[in-house]
Design a protein around this nucleic acid. Structure first.
Length: 878
RNA sequence: GGGCGCAUAGCUCAGCUGGUUAGAGCGCUGCCCUCACAUGGCAGAGGUCGAAGGUUCAAGUCCUUCUGUGCCCACCA
């Protein structure tokens, strides 16, 4: 290693480390009675996917936790896999077909599906390979796919169970229809975007008196062709006398009635609403209340159909213009107002969706939501950050039924058959094609052509990946899983539904913690996307900076939403380089020490006899380990990472190594340095697995794998907070001397005398660390003085030398400091008085909750201690 | 319309249950290629913590209002 370049080169390292892990199946986990399980399921990326920054962040977070837990001795399973992503994947393959000038209808269903499977075989693992490049320590042997045979079994089982329970039904309702994908979408799959549109005011003449008319306002004028009523609020005085009258629907000359319905808001538009039951969800409900006819005016591809009369065949948006022109011609268009409103778009292809009346399968959600609400409310499942709990509960409490059928071919075919004789009203719900119809014994059976929403399989992920519906040992051991990591936009699609499925089918929560991370944005705060062209490709970053650098930089920025520009990755790259070089320094100077016996040798050392620098860094190591653990357990990953960064860079490199580099000839210094390196590598490993593995694996003569080593254990006997504090004082003094030296432009080693005036305690401390002080401060004549330095001493010290006199207290303004401490003491006393008043007040003691009282008591004790400490400091100052 | 965030150094952000002198990285200034590292070292400058009130012995932190800004949800056509 000592001959290796001084610059860390991740490209030469990462592939081989990955091979090392894969070859030995290092990350394979199995039901193991001797250990505690810890499981994470990956949010399965789409098979269409290529790695983007969101994935990089999401998977790095998971990897940090799973590697940490693995090192902590858990049987840590990270379950990987991919999602078939129904519409998304079908779209990709249809685009391929389009290049050949074909549509899927030019192929048979089977041929088309074959194309999809071929595609999946060829590209479906792309994302998995890319996740590996990131360093993800998944149990790759278990990689699942949502359309695997056993997984499909789970999907069908769920469908059948819910159907039998009455929680799945089929019916004609208004759903969101994507005219480009030719399929129904769930409410969650229709993205509402603010759009500048127009509010068209149209005159509908009265039948009895064509000179009179009612003006209706609409944002989608073409839907008027399907109107079957006009509705007004029954309390609206303007229209009261018109209720029940007949209007002539312009352009189609259909007679429609004016009805009264509370739904109508008299304040909006003209207070009169055109009712189109086949093309608007509210109108549909009104239609049901008033028994109105539904007239469908659209083909599935968004063109007008024969019901649109002269507009037949026109695309819906062309029809809009045509309808407006026709109305203008007949002088029936009152006016057009600008209008900002939310328009639904397909979440996959961004086409404007149409509310469309069709027969679909639905899941009744309210009964499923109930237990899922309960487990979040009672804290069995916690969200991080906590505020997402509210978002979740709000959605769950207003949940609507879930449209699960999709009119596409790629996905789980709905396990339902229809008998030709008995018709679609008698669906046969079963896993396998039945031999005959159970009611008429007819043999002409046809399976429902539709497939299930892709989320209808994803919501089973935490247990279907573990073998359910089989009662596998894995399921028993690893379920419920521990933490779920995901992005906020997935809470409704996936997280909520997984909780419902878990409660329904396992009677247990699927995971206990949900960590919601931020969205990765560009430097301007825009969401990274291919279409905007602002996306940074993680693979490019890995190529240029290394996977460790990518991981480190993402996490360190990951408090909330991340604003990422390419330069942000330098911090990770530089840190990796720093680790590399610090390791070189240590390894070059510790060749006498066998790494085999490192821990044994270390244990033999008597900490108290070690050089101060060693004692200090060892103590700092304990503190850091403790803090990092706490941070990780609280899911404060960027904090944990910063702690490791500061420990290695600022403590180990900037101070420790600088203090000991001249003493590497001492054996115990070598042992401690090597030990610190060993432990540091363990600390960084969850964050930067490649470089840490590389250094560790190569420095151990028996080629141990770091991924399988233990997390550092904290030895409280080595911990010495008081000494840490003293050392920091020492560092401050050194900095002050250096500053003066710099200001005076005195070179290192110049003839310079420096007298430090310090307290008795400090005197003892500095005296024993004289050489360190001199070396680091660059002073060759350093003197300490407990007494105030007198002019005479100065004069002696100054013979022919440049003078520096630093009263240690001079680092701070003594008077100011005294004042500050005095006020501080006064404040604390005040607080103590208040507290003691309350603690002696019996009514307070009765009323206040126990923990509050306890807290105040602790606070009182703390404050008292603080006061005496402050008083002591004050005494020292004087 | 409802809900949730954010506003702290030139920039990007930490700052958790109020409590020493508000921190980091980048950028900036000065001095250094010293044999681990210039992807580096040392030192330094830079902050009325968005505004106004309030609670408190004590407020960046808690409360109210306002301003700016971002996101999510929602069937006002």
């Amino acid at each position: 290693m000592n001959t290796i370049s001084s610059r860390y080169n991740p490209q030469t390292v990462e592939d081989s480390r990955r091979d090392l892990w894969e070859k030995d199946h290092v990350f394979h986990a199995q039901a193991n009675r001797k250990k505690n399980p810890f499981a994470i399921v990956i949010p399965p990326p789409n098979v269409t996917g290529i790695l983007h920054m969101g994935h990089a962040l999401n998977n790095t977070l998971q990897d940090i936790l799973i590697r940490y837990k693995r090192m902590k001795g858990f049987e840590a399973l990270w379950m990987p896999g991919t999602d078939h992503a129904g519409i998304a994947t079908q779209n990709v393959v249809e685009k391929q077909l389009a290049k050949e000038g074909k549509t899927r209808h030019d192929l048979s269903r089977e041929e088309f599906l074959q194309r999809l499977w071929d595609w999946k075989k060829q590209y479906g693992d792309t994302i998995i390979h890319q996740l590996k490049k990131l360093g993800s320590s998944c149990d790759w042997d278990r990689t699942r796919f949502t359309m695997d045979e056993p997984y499909s079994k789970a999907v069908n089982t769920v469908f059948i169970r819910l159907y039998k329970k009455g929680l799945i039904y089929r019916g004609r309702y208004i759903i969101n229809w994507c005219p480009r994908c030719h399929t129904a979408l769930s409410d969650e799959e229709a993205e509402h975007k603010e759009t500048q549109g127009a509010l068209y005011h149209i005159r509908y003449p009265l039948k009895d008196d064509p000179s009179e008319h009612v003006i209706v306002a609409t944002t989608r004028p073409e839907t008027m062709l399907g109107d079957t009523a006009v509705a007004v609020n029954p309390k609206d005085a303007r229209y009261k006398k018109l209720i029940g009258k007949i209007l002539i629907l312009p352009l189609v000359n259909r007679e429609i009635r004016i009805i009264a319905d509370d739904f109508v808001d008299p304040q909006f538009g003209t207070g009169a609403v055109k009712v189109t039951p086949a093309h608007d969800p509210n109108d549909f409900q009104m239609g049901q209340r008033h028994d109105l006819e539904t007239i469908n005016i659209l083909h599935e591809d968004g063109r007008m159909n024969e019901n649109a009369k002269q507009f037949n065949g026109l695309d819906r948006f062309k029809a809009r213009t045509a309808v407006i022109e026709a109305l203008q011609k007949e002088n029936l268009l009152e006016r057009i107002d600008e209008h900002l409103h939310a328009v639904g778009h397909c979440y996959r292809c961004h086409t404007v969706v149409e509310p469309y009346l069709s027969r679909q399968w639905f899941v009744k959600m309210k009964p499923l939501a109930k237990p899922a609400i309960r487990v979040v409310k009672n804290g069995q499942i916690k969200f991080y950050p906590e505020r997402w709990t509210k978002t979740y509960l709000n959605w769950m409490e207003n949940i609507r039924d879930w449209c699960i059928s999709r009119q596409i071919w790629w996905g789980h075919r709905i396990p339902v058959w229809y008998c030709k004789a008995c018709g679609e009203d008698r669906p046969i719900v079963t896993d396998q094609k039945p031999g005959h119809c159970p009611c008429c014994r007819g043999k002409d059976l046809r399976q429902d052509p539709d497939v299930l929403d892709t989320w209808f399989s994803s919501w089973l992920w935490p247990f279907a990946t573990l073998g359910w519906p089989k009662r596998s040992a894995d399921l028993k051991y690893f379920y419920p899983t521990s933490v779920l990591f995901t992005a906020p936009e997935i809470i409704f699609f996936w997280v909520a539904r997984m909780i419902m499925a878990g409660m329904e089918f396992q009677k247990k929560i699927p995971f206990s913690d949900v960590y919601i991370h931020g969205t990765v944005r560009d430097a301007q705060g825009r969401k990274m996307s291919k279409s905007l062209g602002n996306a940074l490709d993680p693979l490019e970053i890995i190529q240029e900076y290394g996977a460790d650098a990518l991981r480190f930089s993402l996490i360190v920025n990951s408090g909330q939403d991340l604003f990422i520009a390419k330069e942000k990755f330098e911090i990770g790259r530089n840190f990796a380089n720093k680790i590399w070089n610090a390791s070189r320094l240590i390894l070059m100077n510790t060749t006498d020490i066998s790494t085999l016996d490192l821990h044994k040798n270390f244990k033999k050392l008597k900490t108290k006899d070690l050089p101060l620098a060693c004692q200090w860094i060892l103590s700092k190591l304990q503190t850091t380990t403790q803090d990092v653990e706490t941070a990780i357990e609280r899911f404060r990953f960027s904090e944990a990472e910063t702690l490791v960064y500061d420990f290695i860079w600022k403590n180990v490199c900037d101070w420790y190594l600088e203090m000991v580099k001249s003493r590497f000839n001492e054996k115990e210094v070598q042992i401690v340095s090597l030990y610190i390196l060993d432990q540091s590598l363990r600390l960084v490993h969850p964050f930067m697995p490649f470089i840490s593995e590389e250094i560790y694996h190569n420095m151990t003569s028996d080629k141990k794998i770091l991924s399988l080593q233990n997390w550092p254990t904290i030895d409280h006997r080595i911990k010495n907070p008081a000494m840490e504090q003293s050392m920091e004082g020492l560092f401050a003094v050194i900095a002050a001397i250096r500053n003066i030296r710099a200001q005076w432009h005195i070179n290192n080693g110049a003839d310079l005398c420096c007298i430090l005036q310090c307290s008795a305690n400090e005197y003892r401390f500095f005296e024993s660390n004289f050489s360190v002080l001199e070396t680091l401060a660059g002073i060759n004549d350093l003197r300490l003085s407990q007494a105030p330095v007198k002019t005479k001493d100065m004069a002696t010290a100054l013979c022919g030398k440049i003078k520096i006199f630093i009263p240690l207290k001079g680092l701070i303004d003594v008077e100011k400091e005294q004042k500050r401490i005095e006020t501080e003491i006064e404040n604390c006393r005040h607080s103590c008085e208040n507290l003691s008043k309350r603690l002696n007040d019996t009514s307070f003691l009765k009323k206040a909750p126990k923990d509050v009282v306890e807290k105040e008591k602790t606070r009182f004790a703390e404050l008292s201690a603080k006061i005496s400490e402050l008083e002591k400091t004050l005494g020292d100052l004087a």
